[in-house]
């Protein structure tokens, strides 16, 4: 069971309070009707499947209820960083 830092509660809490919510930084297109079938397919289905740092979303579902972003190393399963929804993708990651 992991410990996850909720950027809203500013506390590191048991994984049991959180739910995973897919890859981060994939915004819903403002006007889907203008998207080609290929673009829409990519939005729906194409994900990075990173080996190493992965940008993903979590929700503090059984806590403050907020969705937030996290960077998790898929090799070590360690969280490198969490940050609030809407904040830009960090350019550098902590060691």
């Amino acid at each position: 069971m992991l410990l996850i830092h909720c950027p809203y509660c500013e506390a590191t809490l048991p994984e049991l309070e959180f739910t995973y919510a897919g890859e981060a930084h994939i915004a819903r297109p403002a006007d889907p009707s203008t998207m080609s079938d290929e673009q829409w397919r990519d939005f729906l289905f194409i994900r990075t499947n990173a080996r190493g740092p992965h940008f993903e979303r979590w929700r503090h579902a059984h806590g403050c209820g907020r969705f937030f972003n996290a960077v998790r190393d898929t090799v070590s399963d360690k969280f490198l960083l969490t940050y609030k929804a809407g904040e830009p993708k960090p350019e550098s990651l902590p060691e």
Binding site: T19, R28, R59, A61, F67
Partner: peptide, 13 residues
Amino acid sequence: LNMMEDYLQTEWP
């Protein structure tokens, strides 16, 4: 409810 919150919090804040 989770899906509604998701759209509200992250797509249409």
